[in-house]
Structure formats: structure tokens, C-alpha cells
């Protein structure tokens, strides 16, 4: 899976916008949107919000979690705990990047938020690596990926799967009864 595909999935998340135009309800396969009235907040998917924003048709209201104090709290908790803590949104990384890139003028303290989210990401990736290592060294067969987001899984997926495949082959050498590595008696 490609990072841009994960981003595509993230664009389905809803975000609140304040439009400055009026339009009747629009009917799409994915659901009905609107009606749009000037300065009345309405929930739309991110892809539409960004499109309208780029055409200067709306103002984006940042999600509740995209706030310096809340993110600091999450970061400190993430550093304190050994396990993965629940993240505010399953697409926090992608949404931060999209919203900050295209609508940074609507988000207060955009730079601080960017740094905080990056801090959270780095902490989580370090944890992910640590748990992958203990997973391998203890010869575990399954793991629970609670609270991990798609983007995080995606960065380590190819490497981890390939390693597990190799390890499986090396482990199957150990079993004397396995067909691989044993001669058939003619």
C-alpha cells in the first residue's frame, strides 16, 4: 500500500467548514451533503473541504483535537506509557498534514501543532520498532495492534512481513518432521 493511498482513505473523514456561499443539498453516492448557507457550519469530507478552501469558498474549522494543549497532553501520555495510547483520530497524521498544508491560515498555532504531531508520531514509531523487535526475539506468533493507525502500520509493513516470512522458514527448519529439508525415502 502506498502512503498516498492511505491519504486518499483519510480524505473520507469529515471536517466542519463555514461556507461563504449558498447551495442546496447535493446528493452523492457517498451520502448527501449540505445544504450550504453562508456562515452556517456544515460537516463535509476533507476532500471537499480542501477543494472549497482552495477556491476560497469556505473557512475550515479545525477538529477539536487539533489544539496545542490537547496535543501536549497526548504527547506526554504517549511518552509515559509503554503501550500505544489511543490517538484522537485514526488519521491524525494525514489530517494534520492535509489541513496544515492547505488551510494553515484557519488553524491557530499551526507550527506548534505540526511539531507536536511529529513528536507524537516519532514516539509511536520508536515504540512500534521496539515492540517489533521484542515480537521477533520472543518468537511470538501473533500480536494485537491496538490503537495503531493505518499510516503507522503501513511504514513498517513490507519490512516486518518479509522478516516474518524469513523467520518462518528458518523456524520450520527446526521441526524434524517437516517435509522441507528432509529427504524422502525411496
Amino acid at each position: 500500500m502506498d502512503a498516498s493511498e492511505v491519504e486518499f482513505l483519510a480524505e473520507k473523514e469529515t471536517v466542519t467548514i463555514i461556507p461563504n456561499f449558498s447551495l442546496d443539498k447535493i446528493y452523492l453516492i457517498g451520502g448527501d451533503l449540505g445544504p450550504f448557507n453562508p456562515s452556517l457550519p456544515v460537516d463535509v469530507p476533507v476532500w471537499l473541504a480542501l477543494n472549497l478552501k482552495q477556491r476560497q469558498k469556505c473557512r475550515i474549522v479545525p477538529p477539536a483535537w487539533m489544539d496545542v494543549e490537547k496535543l501536549e497532553e497526548i504527547r506526554d501520555l504517549e511518552r509515559k506509557e509503554d503501550t500505544f495510547t489511543p490517538v484522537p483520530s485514526p488519521y491524525y497524521m494525514e489530517l494534520t498534514k492535509l489541513l496544515l498544508n492547505y488551510a494553515s491560515d484557519n488553524i491557530p498555532k499551526a507550527d506548534e501543532i505540526r511539531t507536536l504531531v511529529k513528536d507524537i508520531w516519532d514516539t509511536r514509531i520508536a515504540k512500534l520498532r521496539l515492540s517489533a523487535d521484542s515480537f521477533i526475539s520472543q518468537l511470538e506468533a501473533h500480536a494485537k495492534l491496538d490503537n495503531l493507525t493505518l499510516m503507522e502500520i503501513n511504514t513498517i509493513r513490507t519490512f516486518l512481513l518479509d522478516s516474518l516470512n524469513c523467520m518462518y522458514k528458518l523456524r520450520s527448519n527446526l521441526q524434524p518432521g517437516s517435509s522441507k529439508g528432509q529427504f524422502k525415502d525411496f
Binding site: 520498532r129 517489533a132 523487535d133 521477533i136 526475539s137 518468537l139 519490512f159 522478516s163 524469513c166 523467520m167 528458518l170 523456524r171 527448519n173 527446526l174 524434524p176 529439508g181 528432509q182 529427504f183
Partner: peptide, 29 residues
């Protein structure tokens, strides 16, 4: 090498696996 019957086969297989595991972290990082 495990195809050739040798009394040391179990140890060889064990060492291969342990070597892979031991080098995994460094390779990943």
C-alpha cells in the same frame, strides 16, 4: 546443509534462527 544428515543439524538450525533474531534489531533500525 540440513539436507545432509549430520548429528549437529538441530544445533545448526537453532544457530541460524538465533543469528537472524540477534541481527534483526540492528537491520531494522
Amino acid at each position: 546443509m540440513l539436507h545432509f544428515d549430520s548429528p549437529e543439524n538441530p544445533e545448526i538450525a537453532q544457530t541460524l534462527l538465533q543469528t537472524f533474531i540477534g541481527r534483526f534489531r540492528r537491520n531494522m533500525d
